[in-house]
Write a protein that binds this DNA or RNA. Structure first.
Length: 433
RNA sequence: GGAGAGAUGGCUGAGUGGUUUAAGGCACACGCCUGGAAAGCGUGCGUAGGUAACACUACCGUGAGUUCAAAUCUCACUCUCUCCGCCA
């Protein structure tokens, strides 16, 4: 949520920044200003009436105390119809506020001034590359072939159980998934200073609204119902990312400045409907309805937001570096950034069998966009309440990391070598057919 | 699923229709005192809207209602706790 004061005072600036996203949301500003104006006018009017009513009621109370009932009755007549006027104006203000806030929730964040202008992925500036694409003396296979021959994933039975877009990891495949999760959690908690949390996997809609997934993208998530009770549908949703519960941990709280920065790290499965998305319905692990992810969340003072984002990016890169994987970092341009973000870096890992880079991490500074929606604040030493910056980053997403790993480390005989850092976790140095 | 109790500021806790603007305590901040501290004393201390600053307005779990006036009365709902049942 943007600051209504900013929209009120600098509407053209806000329109201009929104326009750089290229989705037309700047057109909502006019309606917001109109509703805001209606709300303020109604409030100004009704507050005068309420002040009158409060004053007269107090006088009536005093007269009743002195048993001057006739005078009290006269006063009652004076304020008789105030109540109806107040009710009507309150209603007007409330309606206008609802209209204003409904539109405000659909406005994305303003891109940070440093973010490159652009329309889509093709305009994303390359920040850096790390390592080299591995050389193969043979034609590298796709992860689908490797997973089948090594019996790491049973694609057909995954589909049998839950439909397309669901994976059944088997034997060493399941162990590799678990080893990667544990490896990343240990790295971030032991070496990067994050505190591990294990949040609920189902959350109420207020959490999705808090991070900006609702109301605009409501059709992309799984709502659940208890039993067959249709009335309960939509009270809880399967989380699309650990960001949803973890960023909301301190919602509606006033933290103290001393607590910041707060750094959380969480492993969770992630559930995404991906309605209409390309890739679902085909075989493979690149785009699925359920995948595992280790997520990083930071709550920081505004002045530290961008420095902390660089650190978080480095923390995520460290996963790929320590596993010996080639990757590149790109900065998302204004047209390609997510709804809540002011600035985002993507990390894309090289998948030799695919012959392409796969997005395994997205590191965003949402500034105070989410903390405003959640009403999460911190009290400065000076006693002022401020909205903190909230950052999220994948550290990293599984499935695709799994893909990159097996495709990168495949051997001519069809086996897959395990990089040294992971060997203590998997307790083997090679997967063989 | 059944029965009972409860929901008031950062915490605790009083407040059963009006003269209170939610008492008191704890915690916290500043000052006095002190060699320094503790204790003591004094001052301040919820959130938001609004104003140049005051004024003013709203908020006592949520939503309706009664009334000139609601933390207080009425109705509905939500959540929490205790006990019972079921259960990994």
């Amino acid at each position: 949520m943007l600051d209504i004061k900013l929209i009120r005072e600098r509407p053209d600036f806000v329109r201009q920044r929104l326009a750089t996203r290229g989705a037309g949301e700047e057109q909502l500003i006019e309606g917001i200003l109109l509703a805001d104006d209606q709300r303020r006018k109604a409030l100004a009017e009704v507050e005068i009436l309420k002040a009158t009513r409060n004053r007269v009621s107090k006088e009536i109370g005093a007269l009743m105390g002195q048993k001057k009932f006739a005078e009290a009755d006269a006063k009652k007549v004076e304020t008789k119809d105030l109540g109806d006027q107040i009710t009507a104006l309150d209603q007007q203000a409330k309606t206008a506020e609802g209209a204003r806030d409904g539109l405000m929730l659909r406005l994305p964040n303003l891109p940070h001034e440093s973010v490159a202008l652009g329309k889509g992925a093709a305009d994303n500036p390359l920040v850096r590359r790390h390592g080299e694409k591995p050389d193969f003396a043979f034609q590298p296979k796709s992860h689908v072939e490797l997973c089948e021959s090594l019996k790491l994933v049973d694609f057909a039975r995954g589909v049998k159980l839950s439909g397309s877009g669901f994976l059944l990891y088997t034997n060493w495949g399941a162990k590799l998934e678990r080893a990667l999760i544990q490896y990343m959690l240990d790295l971030h908690t032991r070496e990067h200073g994050y505190t591990e949390v294990a949040p609920p996997l189902m959350v109420g809609p207020q959490c999705l609204e808090g991070v900006g997934q609702f109301p605009k993208f409501k059709d992309q998530y799984y709502g659940v119902a208890e039993g067959n009770d249709a009335a309960k549908l939509g009270q809880l949703y399967l989380i699309p990312t650990a960001e949803t519960p973890v960023a909301n941990i301190h919602r509606e709280e006033i933290l103290s400045e001393k607590q910041l920065p707060i750094c959380y790290c969480a492993y969770t499965p992630c559930f995404r409907g991906e309605a209409g998305a390309a890739g679902v319905g085909t075989r493979g692990m690149i785009r699925v309805h359920q995948f595992d992810k280790v997520e990083l969340i930071k709550i920081v003072k505004p002045e530290d937001g961008y420095a902390e984002q660089e650190k978080m990016l480095a923390d995520a890169e460290r996963v790929l570096q320590s596993l010996g994987l080639h990757y590149r970092v790109v900065e998302l341009c204004t047209g390609d950034m997510g709804f809540a973000s002011a600035k985002t870096y993507d990390i894309e890992v090289w998948a030799a069998g695919q012959g392409s880079y796969l997005e395994v991490s997205s590191v965003s500074n949402c500034e105070d966009f989410q903390s405003r929606r959640m009403n999460m604040r911190f009290k400065t030493e000076a006693g002022e309440n401020k909205f903190p910056h909230i950052l999220n980053g994948s550290g990293t997403a599984l499935a695709r990391l799994f893909v990159a790993l097996v495709e990168t480390y495949q051997q001519v005989d069809g086996s897959v070598l395990i990089p040294p850092a992971l060997q203590p976790y998997l307790k083997t140095n090679q997967l063989v057919p």
